[in-house]
Design a protein around this nucleic acid. Structure first.
Lengths: 127, 127, 127, 127
DNA sequence: GTGGTCTAGACCACA
DNA sequence: GTGGTCTAGACCACG
């Protein structure tokens, strides 16, 4: 698994790592039951501190994408979406859509954009 | 114009203000050519520091929603979307969509969510 | 507010701090709306590292006892209990009660113990 | 005896095993004088390391639920509760009750919860 | 002046 | 060998 960090980004490193791992699941490179690398190893691999990886893993745990135990480390195990997730999704989405709308981007153009991203994960099923 | 700030949110206040103003444009409460309130006044109205309002206005300017000049202050003037905007939109959208996909939300369900938000601004045109 | 840490305890320091603060609320020394000390100040006061306090505050936030914002820092704001809380409460309680039962402590004796602790917070209301 | 381990729980495995055995006594499935399975066998049965079982058995011994000798292995022999037990019980219970109280759960509701758990072991006596 | 992020490096509990 | 905790000390974003 290859994670590329942009140190100049204003997105915190641990969030970038979180996103990269979820992206890895979406792409099918990481499957349910797979173990993520040990925090210290991944830290060395991508050249950041152990604590930063730790924070990313714990965030993934809180978001329901992995479980953590001392035997197998961090293991992919995705909780399905629920009402709370839908709510937070909507709240994240709303200001983005509003900006696009105000800038004159119509609904169909926006949906096309969404479809384009979805198609990247196209044939895959997450089970 | 009524802006409600949620101090408990982890969205920075100046971003909340920015979002509220764009939302105001989307809802038709603010139109091209309208002036935003003077910084001091808005700061007092919603009970935050002038500095914070200033930051929000500057962000709106950078995003192409207003112009700022000494004479008229902050005036709504929306730049249409361009390639750079599309790129940043995609970058914002991607991790959100990826999470939804991995959690088992399919494309159509996501699109329905998008449509729901778009419909809030329904019949309006921004000109 | 006075927090006493037992460095020899196997309860992590940040958990001890969390417990002490909840205890402070229960005793009425901390009320809704009160700000907790800034993390660095409390860290110095009780002689632990800033990060340990930070962890305690974030845990309290996750548990629904405080909110955190940059303006007022950590502010007491208690979420009422819900189903999820009841479940975790039951799971915590079960092994404790089971031990007591097996050791021959009957229901009434156990309840008396509970009442004794409740009475420490007796006349108070948390609103 | 059937012990189910939850690797995703943050309760250590050896504590889960300890709890399960005490629960077995409470339910009457294990009685005074009964032998627990040999360490190796139980380790194999539930798929954990011998070391972990050993730790659980030693904990049970320290808590006064079993005796361990070379001839008969681990044998259920429950010490009645004493002052020290009461003290540790109180210390465990206090933060749990405090959280419940602060979240607005009143004494009677809490006691009802306790009674519900006690009733699971209802008509039984441990002798 | 507040919390948030990150680093470097140590020790410990659990498996 | 795994994650968890803790420390000391730095820099940054937000208000």
């Amino acid at each position: 698994m290859f994670i590329k960090i942009d140190l100049t980004s204003d997105v915190p490193i641990y969030v970038q790592i979180k996103n990269a791992i979820i992206e890895g699941i979406a792409r099918g490179e990481l499957k349910e039951g797979d173990s993520l690398p040990p925090i210290r190893q991944l830290a060395e691999d991508i050249g950041v501190n152990m604590h930063t990886i730790n924070k990313a893993y714990n965030l993934l745990k809180d978001l329901g994408f992995i479980t953590i135990n001392k035997k197998y480390g961090a293991v992919i195990q995705v909780e399905g979406f629920n009402g709370a997730f839908m709510e937070s999704l909507k709240e994240e989405l709303r200001p983005i859509i509003t900006e696009a709308f105000v800038k004159g981007m119509d609904r169909d153009a926006f949906i096309k954009l969404v479809e384009g991203i979805y198609d990247d994960f196209g044939g895959r099923r997450n089970e």
